[in-house]
Simulated scan of single mutants.
Amino acid sequence: LTLDEARRPAVVERDGLRIGVLSYNCVGPRESWATSRKPGCAYVKVLTHYELDHASPGGPPAVYTFADPATLERMAEDVAALAAEADVVTVSLHKGVGHTPAVLAMYERPVAHAAIDAGAHAVFAHHAHIMRGVEMYRGRPIYHGLGNFVTVTHALTPATGDAGERAEWARRRVELYGFAPDPDMPYYPFHPESRNTAIAVCRFDRDGSGSAGLVSAGLVPCWIDGAGRPVPLGDDEEGRRVVSYIEGITRQAGLTTEFHWEGDEVVLRG
């Protein structure tokens, strides 16, 4: 796909509602970005600035990240154009700091907010391989990262005696992210906390005036079992433990979303 093609929405019709989906990449190598002459993904360019704000050369800097205004505006234009022709607009964002519990980088909320401000009814994010907090912004949900779901691989786990790239990555992973995967799950080389995950549940319908909108937003908690399979949970001890985890990382990220059980689902308010 060229950039123009990558920016085109997917639109499906269900039960009389036209539902549009747009997807953007905020992380990953520039080689994956589409241009006018090269296939790739639609993207929002994120800039990173490192500031050494103390007199200790070589010490840890403060990190500031923000979206390039031109590409952020381009995303907003796409969302607004889709909102003019579809009943429901959803945006998928490939974003976030990998393998790091709770943290939202500086750019993440502004980019998601820009999508909602332009007309999106919901934002679903992924990439970090670990669950992120959930935000309600202007009455619309932003799932800042839905973590892992069906994600199993041996590609990142070194074999016995392996001295190549996989072994080097295993060493770097501890250095960068401070964890080693469960040795009993070599096919699941991710942060132990990433076994807490969820399915986003959003319901849309028309109101009395015929306008389409969000009826409810919520989630179904899940746990990645010992075989790497996501297991949906209900309103029981395990389900409440996972929801407590999600609520905890939501608070750590400075978000005030409220989580309420309704049957075996959790409804979001805020």
Rank of each mutant, 00 (worst) to 15 (best):
54 H>P: 03
199 I>F: 08
43 Y>E: 00
47 L>H: 12
65 T>Y: 00
59 G>A: 14
1 L>H: 08
59 G>S: 15
170 A>M: 08
128 A>N: 03
217 A>Q: 08
31 E>T: 15
124 F>N: 10
76 A>N: 04
232 P>H: 07
189 P>K: 04
114 A>E: 09
153 T>E: 07
183 P>S: 11
229 R>E: 11
183 P>Y: 06
182 D>V: 04
157 T>V: 05
179 F>V: 00
187 Y>H: 14
102 A>E: 10
269 R>N: 09
208 G>R: 14
106 M>V: 04
249 I>E: 04
4 D>I: 04
41 C>Q: 12
79 V>D: 05
40 G>S: 10
36 S>C: 03
133 G>D: 01
87 D>H: 09
114 A>I: 06
156 L>N: 06
49 H>Q: 14
220 V>F: 04
60 P>V: 10
154 H>C: 05
220 V>K: 05
241 R>M: 13
227 A>W: 08
41 C>M: 12
19 I>E: 10
146 L>A: 11
21 V>D: 07
260 H>E: 15
96 G>V: 06
105 A>D: 14
74 R>D: 14
204 F>Q: 01
139 G>V: 01
216 S>W: 03
227 A>G: 10
120 A>H: 04
112 A>K: 00
103 V>K: 08
54 H>I: 03
245 Y>R: 13
133 G>W: 09
4 D>L: 09
8 R>H: 10
185 M>H: 01
98 G>D: 14
132 R>M: 03
113 H>N: 06
193 E>T: 01
86 A>T: 03
149 F>W: 14
